[in-house]
Simulated scan of single mutants.
Amino acid sequence: EYIQNGHSSPKGCLYLKDWHMSRDFPEHNVYTTPVFFSSDWLNEYWDTLEVDDHCLLVVSRTPFHADVFRSYSWSANICGRKKWLLYPPGQEDFLRDTHGNLPYDVTSAELQDGNLFPRFEEACQPLEIIQEAGEIIFVPSGWHHQVYNLEDTISINHNWLNGCNIDIMWQFLQNELSSVQKEIDEWKNTMDSWHQHCQVIMKACSGIDYGEFASFLKIIAENRMAFLKACSSGESSDYSRHLSETFTTLGPYHAAFDLQRVAYIIECLLCNEDFKRLDRSTLTLQPEAMVQQIRDTIQSTRGRHLLYQE
């Protein structure tokens, strides 16, 4: 309708992002997530919380960035063409200005100014991809990228996390908190709740703090423990239809792998000094108890259905 009515904008071609169209209009059966991308902890968590739907009208390009929480992303072009510029992890450090900031546009001529971007010449050339209609691109964790719609384009995009990159998310969160602590270090000795304020600022900047990260792990673990117990007992589980189909497709081996990864990250939390400073009474996750539950679930299901191999 936007195109047919000849609408235009001084900002150029615009597009509408609809975060939950598929969830809110299931009768339309808009698309099915490819099985390769179906282990999606991020959307599983947000769907559990029933995060409100919202839309955003934006310019038809994305500035230079890495994806939220250093998640994976996949993008499927239904129609139209996109141009991608991608840099491997670590290359972004060569693209920072003298203040440590990343450029908005990596193709800008100002990056040639050595006084502003002193390490630009050390950066490798970006991987350039033209994505055609009917093609899907996978962006690994930590790959900074910039994207242009070359023409009117409809695409389906997901950011996603799972057991294969949850450790990268945990490292990202530690780096984010460290940056906040560095910024307000001068007030450390004058504020009784300095560490708590760091968590608040971190959540405002990054969208999550250590407490919510712990809640995230709890939901992921509980869903998989319930699935494995259902496999063992033969009883049905109280999941959403989508989650039930995902678990059935991925199977008990995958659920077991996820549990082992969650247990590993929780053990990392228990060793982290900043996590130790959190008020345990405010957490939905009791980490020691959760690790023990995971171990008990693994032990109780291992022999019955040969879910694991020694």
Rank of each mutant, 00 (worst) to 15 (best):
E1D: 13
P10M: 02
G12N: 06
L16S: 05
K17V: 15
D18R: 07
H20R: 15
V30T: 08
T32S: 14
P34Q: 12
F36L: 15
D40F: 10
D40C: 10
W41F: 15
L42M: 13
N43G: 07
D47F: 13
T48F: 13
V51P: 06
D52A: 14
D52V: 03
V58T: 12
A66N: 08
A66R: 05
D67P: 09
D67N: 11
S71K: 01
S75H: 12
A76D: 01
G80R: 03
R81P: 01
G90M: 07
D97P: 12
N101Q: 14
P103Q: 14
D105E: 06
E110W: 11
L111K: 09
G114L: 09
N115M: 10
F117S: 02
F117Q: 02
E121F: 08
E121P: 01
P126Y: 05
E128N: 13
A133W: 03
G134V: 09
E135R: 04
Q146V: 01
Q146C: 03
Y148R: 08
L150I: 03
D152S: 08
D152H: 11
T153S: 10
T153M: 10
T153C: 10
L161W: 06
I166V: 15
Q171D: 11
L173Q: 14
Q174L: 15
W187R: 00
K188D: 02
T190E: 04
M191Y: 05
M191F: 09
D192T: 06
H197V: 05
M202F: 02
C205D: 08
S206W: 00
D209E: 14
A214K: 01
N223G: 05
R224A: 04
A226Y: 02
L228E: 03
G234C: 02
S236K: 12
S237C: 07
H242E: 02
E245I: 07
F247V: 00
T248L: 12
F257M: 01
I265W: 04
I266W: 02
I266T: 01
L269W: 12
C271E: 15
E273I: 12
R277W: 02
D279N: 12
S281R: 11
T282F: 09
T284P: 01
L285N: 03
P287S: 13
E288P: 07
A289K: 11
I294P: 05
I298K: 07
Q299T: 11
R304H: 13
L307A: 11
E310T: 15
